[in-house]
C-alpha cells in the first residue's frame, strides 16, 4: 500500500516563479492567521475536554459542584456577561450573571455601580469626592442556594432543586407570577416578559452535565471564576482551596445557604 504522504514527499521538485511564490506566501499568512485565531480557542477547548472525564450527564446528580469566585482576580472586562448572554440567549437588559464595581475612598465614601451589568466593561471611573479610592469587582450569579427561598415560594413547583445542587426553572410549568423573583435575595432571577416565564443562571446546566465548564468560567481571561465537580470521597482542588483560603458567601444571615464561594471581598458587598 502506497503512502500518500510519502509519495507527496517524493514528488519531483518544481520551479517556483514569483507569482507562485506570492500565492504560497499569501496562503501561508492566511493559514497562520487562521491557526493563531484557532489557537486562542484551544486552551478553552482543552479546559472543556479536560472536564469531560468528570461527570457524565447521567451520573451528574451524584456529583458535588464547587463554584468559587476570586474577586481579587476579576478585572471587570465583562467577557463572562457576554459569554453568558450568547450561550443562554439572555434577553437584553436582563442578566444571568453580572459584575458589580465597588469603589471606596480613603474617607470611606462608597460607590457601587454595574453599568449595563458590566457587560461592556467599566469604561469610566466613578465620580467621587473622596481621596485615593480603591476599587474591586465582584461577579454575581445565581448562588444555587442549598436552602433556596425561590423554590420554597414557587406555588407550582416550577422551580426546583436538583440532586446535583443546581436550581432550575421548568418553563413549561412556570406561570410567571414572579414570587420567586421577589423571594431571591440576590436578584439573580428575572421575568422574561416575551416568554412569560422566569429565567435564571443555571451554572450552564446543559454544559456542566456533559462535563463542560459554564460559559462564564470558560471565558474568564483571569481565572476569577472556577467551577469543579467531584464525587464524595474524591480529592477536590476547590475543597482544598476553601480549606486554606478565607472565603465568604453573600447574605449568609438570610439562611439560604448560598453555594457560590467568594475569595477576597470586603464587608460592603451584598
Amino acid at each position: 500500500m502506497s503512502n500518500p504522504r510519502a509519495s507527496r514527499g517524493c514528488a519531483p521538485h518544481r520551479h517556483t516563479d514569483r507569482r507562485e511564490f506570492m500565492k504560497i506566501t499569501a496562503r501561508t499568512v492566511a493559514a497562520g492567521v487562521v491557526s493563531y485565531s484557532l489557537s486562542l480557542r484551544i486552551p478553552k477547548l482543552a479546559k472543556g475536554t479536560a472536564l469531560e472525564s468528570g461527570p457524565s450527564a447521567d451520573a451528574f446528580e451524584e456529583h458535588f459542584c464547587n463554584f468559587i469566585v476570586n474577586t481579587t482576580k476579576c478585572i471587570g472586562c465583562g467577557s463572562c456577561v457576554r459569554a453568558c448572554r450568547n450561550e443562554n440567549h439572555v434577553p437584553g437588559g436582563y442578566y444571568r450573571t453580572w459584575i458589580e464595581r465597588y469603589t471606596e475612598s480613603e474617607d470611606h465614601e462608597l460607590f457601587v455601580d454595574s453599568p449595563g451589568g458590566g457587560e461592556n466593561g467599566f469604561m469610566s471611573a466613578p465620580r467621587m469626592k473622596g481621596r485615593n479610592p480603591k476599587a474591586f469587582f465582584v461577579p454575581k450569579l445565581c448562588n444555587q442556594c442549598e436552602k433556596p427561598a425561590c423554590t420554597q415560594v414557587c406555588p407550582v413547583s416550577a422551580t426546583y432543586y436538583t440532586d446535583g445542587g443546581v436550581v432550575l426553572v421548568d418553563k413549561d410549568r412556570c406561570m410567571g407570577c414572579g414570587y420567586c423573583v421577589q423571594a431571591c435575595p440576590y436578584e439573580a432571577r428575572y421575568v422574561d416578559h416575551a416568554a412569560g416565564t422566569v429565567d435564571k443562571c443555571t451554572w450552564c446546566y446543559h454544559r456542566i452535565t456533559r462535563g463542560l465548564p459554564p460559559a462564564c468560567v470558560l471565558t474568564c481571561p483571569t481565572g476569577a471564576r472556577s467551577f469543579t465537580t467531584h464525587v464524595e470521597g474524591e480529592t477536590c482542588a476547590a475543597c482544598e482551596l476553601l480549606k486554606s483560603e478565607r472565603y465568604d458567601v453573600l447574605k449568609e444571615e438570610l439562611g439560604t445557604d448560598p453555594q457560590v464561594y467568594y475569595l477576597g471581598f470586603n464587608r460592603e458587598v451584598r
Binding site: P155, C174, C177, V191
Partner: peptide
C-alpha cells in the same frame, strides 16, 4: 388582577392541581 398579572394565566389552575406545599402562595 392576578390573572391579568400572570405571564401564563392558562396555568393558573396548576396552583390547585400541582401545588407546592411549601409555598405561601399555593
Amino acid at each position: 388582577p392576578l390573572l391579568l398579572h400572570l405571564g401564563h394565566p392558562e396555568r393558573a389552575f396548576n396552583i390547585m392541581i400541582t401545588p407546592n406545599r411549601s409555598s405561601a402562595m399555593a
